[in-house]
Design a protein around this nucleic acid. Sequence first.
DNA 1: TCTGGGGTCCTAGGACCC
DNA 2: TCTGGGGTCCTAGGACCC
Length: 439
Amino acid sequence: MRRQATVLHLDLDAFFAAVEQRDKPSLRGKPVVVGGLGPRGVVSTASYEARTYGIRSAMRTAEARARCPHAAYLSDRFDAYRDASRVVMERLREISPLVEPLSLDEAFVDLAAGEASRSLDLDGARALAEQVRADIADRTGGLTASVGIASSKFLAKIASELAKPDGVHVVEPGTELDVLAPMSVRAIPGVGPATAERLRRLGVHTVEDLRGLEAVELTSLLGTAYGTSLHALARGVDHRAVVAERETKSLSVEDTFETDITDPRVLADIATTMSRRLSDRLRERGMSGRTVTLKIRHHDFETHTRSATLAGPTDDARTIARTATGLLTEIDSSSGLRLLGVGVSGMADWVQDDLFVADEEPDGGAEPELTSVAGASARPRTRWPAGADVVHAELGPGWVWGSGLGRVTVRFETRTSGPGPVRTFAADDPSLTPGTVEP
DNA sequence: TCTGGGGTCCTAGGACCC
DNA sequence: TCTGGGGTCCTAGGACCC
């Protein structure tokens, strides 16, 4: 938090729908809904015209259609949104090099890091915001943005909300608490339905009410990290810096099916296709990850994840697919799955060579210090129980065959029942002796 | 015809090590 | 013999955001 209003938050108005109205003039002034159009689709963005019918983001598209049958329903065109977003972010970087995009349509700007910062009183900030909005409309073919300016990220975001649509709002330093006091706790970013309900049971509805709670009360209710930050935010205190570069922590692909799927073979095929899509995205970005996560959602919406951590980071479609399908075998899909997803986390910007891929034969000692690793794919086969073919063996750091050092990750495949589970063993695990390991 | 897809951060418990 | 920490890694789940 600063004594001057030097944090700017910009939010494009009804962004996806606005891009569609820009590109299709016949849609201007009319209700437009962008989102999933299938039976299980939900609304991504509703134009302001559509919002007058009560249509909101995350609403089922079927419900939106019932509320406003004559609206235009469009599926999203991410490439177009990305192009527009890039133009907007470029304009923001002309103000200051410290721009933190939060999504395609939202960003913080640290004005204090920019050239104009010396001359920025409140009127100067306001004028700058108007100039940026005009330039954005000009360069994007008419997209409108709302801008908030305040002494912290938190209040800048609150301010842009107050500015919507198509406006500017500056929270003057010193007035933060007055602005916040009457607002619902839901106005605080991070307070969702669950937290709001817990607070409501304590009789807390507004930010002013929230200020009546001690830090210990909040931390015992909500946990240390969240309780502490909420205690501060309620008092308008927010010292978070604007951060230009944020590293990606995970990458994932998921799909909701039009109808539930029970057949494990079909699901395995889908997981394999998703692994390829994920691998492509990893490679585009020059990234790799060590933990593969499978996500499933049952017919009744119950959602689970299963993950396995590999010996080293990978971007390889086959490795990801093997791990994901291995995890799939732990899932009972007999009552039907509505969603399947594959993700990778534990990111690295380097890739471990495919030394550990089981279906690659040992390559004859071309890499001396690695031959024991490359040969592992064949050797464990002779050591694992009859009937369980080891189709994939990954070797942890420092692993040397027969030495008892390191860790071994194995996916079993039995001849009779298809893909089996992934298991990790210490290399000296006594269960690795023949006949004792149950896949 | 209930409830998308892409993320982030936090918590909690268990294993394991010192 | 019993009692004890702390730290890190891994897994699973939950809340939240756009």
